[in-house]
Design a binder for these strands. Sequence first.
DNA 1: GACCTGCGTGACAGCGCTTTCAGAAAAGGG
DNA 2: CCCTTTTCTGAAAGCGCTGTCACGCAGGTC
Lengths: 344, 344
Amino acid sequence: MADVAERAGVSTSTVSRTLRGLSTVSPEVRARVERAARELDFAISRQAASLVTGKTGTVAVLVCTLNSWFMGSALSALGPMLRAADLELNLYVVPDLDERASFFKRLPARRNADALLVFSFDLTDEETARLDDLGMPVIYVSQHVDGRPSVYVDDVAGALNGTRHLLNLGHRRIAFLQAVGSSGFSFSSSERLLGYQQALTEAGLPLDEDLVVATPFPDKHGTAKALGKLLSLREPPTAVFAEHDEAAVAAIRVLRAAQIGVPEQMSVLGFDDHPVADLFDLSTVAQSPSDIGREAGELALRLINDPDADHARHIVLPSHVIPRATTAPLFQAQNRGQEQAGSP
Amino acid sequence: MADVAERAGVSTSTVSRTLRGLSTVSPEVRARVERAARELDFAISRQAASLVTGKTGTVAVLVCTLNSWFMGSALSALGPMLRAADLELNLYVVPDLDERASFFKRLPARRNADALLVFSFDLTDEETARLDDLGMPVIYVSQHVDGRPSVYVDDVAGALNGTRHLLNLGHRRIAFLQAVGSSGFSFSSSERLLGYQQALTEAGLPLDEDLVVATPFPDKHGTAKALGKLLSLREPPTAVFAEHDEAAVAAIRVLRAAQIGVPEQMSVLGFDDHPVADLFDLSTVAQSPSDIGREAGELALRLINDPDADHARHIVLPSHVIPRATTAPLFQAQNRGQEQAGSP
DNA sequence: GACCTGCGTGACAGCGCTTTCAGAAAAGGG
DNA sequence: CCCTTTTCTGAAAGCGCTGTCACGCAGGTC
């Protein structure tokens, strides 16, 4: 910066002011400084600036994996959003419980970011408390934590609408397929189950526990077992609502392998609108991870710039049903099922 | 840090030395300092440290998107690797040409990182030159740039082996399906084509230009058109080698919709071992993005710590053929094809 | 012409660390 | 027991910026 100042024949103060687009710098001097900076390929050192401003110009993002469609889409939207606000994006990938423990013990983001976005973690109270005294706004994404800023889709409403779609098609025996992940990360399982139950209750149908089955995920054998339970009921379901699309696809593969036509004999509905949904023509309840990412970024900006902002604000995003080829009316489905039984 | 020093009854110099595990600090003092630091939840400010050391403790990563299996896997491996080396990961998501231009103009990573990893970009010479005077090691990942450190899988060898697999199954008319992306990002298309051609030449087969077709991707209609060309040849192929799995899956869907059995009448081979490959039982040439991510991270570490290291080093990773259910011997395939023609 | 106002600029302190240097204390050697 | 060596610790400078403050200078007012 001293070099730029010398070359432009001004003081470093003026260079600093110019480069930050600040207050009053005479147009002539401004031009000189900008030219000098360009010629020297000068870029400000955030480190030095942050030392005195106290702002790091960085947003930290905590994720358990990037290896998922959801994270990829959300961050692909978040990244450019932050760039536009001239913020750096600092990524913490915490894949397993060991790393997680060490992250929460050391909190490496402390003092090195202006805000933290926590994606899709099922946090313990202790962990939440730990983040509370991190000294920066913490935004919970794709999850809601009481009293803390959160951004998420309304899973209850989504599952409610999805179930209604099946009900409207005439289905009365509707199963719910839960996907139990391996690590302690929440994928809003219970909320979706709740929405499913609400829809049934609303329709005056009983909640049959036999219709709610769980499968470890990913695990094809587990899916087969879970579906086996359903298919061996006295009154088997005519539709399956899977907690997420990947489980739904696993179910479709099991059903088709067993010569059970989808949707002729069994409607299958997913959740998420994951790319595989399109590949399998899967009807599903769509959510938009890129909207979530963007909203989370904007909330972060607001909280950084205005510390008095409402720190308990929740942003709830909508979802919507996308009917494709794996859900069909019950009556027609049964007819078709009998005519073409056995053919995929 | 002053607080810690006071609480431990030592100078800030000693605190600094202790916290960095440096040189000789007496065990007793060390214990006192560590306790004080723990009690005050003290975390070092990287900004302040970097100001004097000149090291930022950060690795910048440039990607065009995260919304792909490859990036997700690579970064999911890279992240923990860098964490283990106590480095931050600074992510730059540059999705379109505008952002790309602005990135290369401003080079925001300058002075704010110790190394830059560039993922899967098809860079112009100008852009490469721009990165050269960034003043930090730049590592090219999933691409190779002459004279610069690069990490990538051997696409030529992979495609060679994949084609050999088809040849070994008896196929002689083997098509190659190119997937032309929209934006200027390379997915090693030409290398894979080259491997395919090498294998044919090696087997003494002519290179029939009609057998190489391109499809815009993603675009189902385009795939149908490309396959149409192949199927209307005087001597249509009995196998299709797709540049990547997603194109292969698109091809399978088109073929099956047209009642052409895969693999009975047409073998299909993909490339990448993308998750959809497993879902469609697609034979493919596997690469390991997590290995790429890890190797890239390790190379970055080496270049940061040892500036004299070989800056032109290329790390080439292997790929291997995974036969699944979409490739079958030619002879048997034709028999089966005739017996069951028309059934999927 | 003395006074005020306000704009544009430079000098300088200081952000929180690291690092050199020097000095105190302990250890060893004659 | 004195002197050298080694081991440990503190004082202080300075990294590259920002922000405060003071100053010079034009233009306006009485």
